[in-house]
């Protein structure tokens, strides 16, 4: 099949730096404003007050976090706001040593999926872990939200600084 492969021209980084190849650059310069919408808007109001909240579909009984205005399984409007806990279980985690543009981090970030207590099983959210030795993190570990002080909270997912191990670890 070798004859069916076109011999494409490849470039090296230095071909750009040394002016061996012509190119144009363009910065899209597109700034977006995304509306939080109904369900997440309310979720953030509650975060500002130091609480986590979900919605429940009374048809399948699921309690969904983050909250949604409709149940994607039943395709019906969600029926009720339900308070949930600010504790949960680590479903999975990583120790991340690079930024998105591939610069090295000395101290790893610890992203994790945390299944929130009081929500239906498997309702996980993405957040970071803190106040923990990276080597001591385990799947199944119980964690609790560490909130910013009330006056610093803005109605954002970052009103929770991170989740830390619940006592006993």
């Amino acid at each position: 099949m070798k004859e069916h492969v076109y011999d494409t021209t490849y470039l090296r980084t230095r071909d750009f730096e040394e002016g061996k190849v012509l190119f144009e650059t363009w910065d899209p310069n597109a700034k977006y404003t995304w509306d939080a919408g109904i369900a997440i808007g309310k979720f953030f109001q509650e975060l500002k007050a130091g609480r986590l909240i979900g919605t429940q579909c009374l048809n399948c009984q699921r309690i969904m976090v983050p909250p949604r205005m409709f149940c994607e399984h039943c395709f019906l409007p969600a029926d009720a706001w339900v308070p949930v806990e600010d504790t949960g279980t680590v479903v999975t985690f990583s120790l991340c040593y690079v930024t998105w543009d591939m610069n090295r981090l000395e101290e790893p970030q610890i992203p994790a999926v945390v299944a929130i207590d009081g929500a239906s099983p498997g309702m996980g959210i993405l957040h970071l872990l803190g106040e923990v030795d990276p080597k001591a993190v385990t799947i199944g570990m119980s964690v609790k939200a560490v909130w910013k002080p009330a006056e610093e909270r803005t109605g954002s997912i970052t009103d929770i600084r991170y989740f830390k191990p619940l006592g006993g670890f």
Partner: peptide, 21 residues
């Protein structure tokens, strides 16, 4: 209560002119 989040896509496109270009 209406909350919005502002952001962008932090990329720059670099276009080669191509073989003919």
């Amino acid at each position: 209560q209406a909350i919005a989040w502002e952001g962008d896509m932090p990329i720059t496109s670099r276009y080669t002119m191509g073989i003919a270009g």
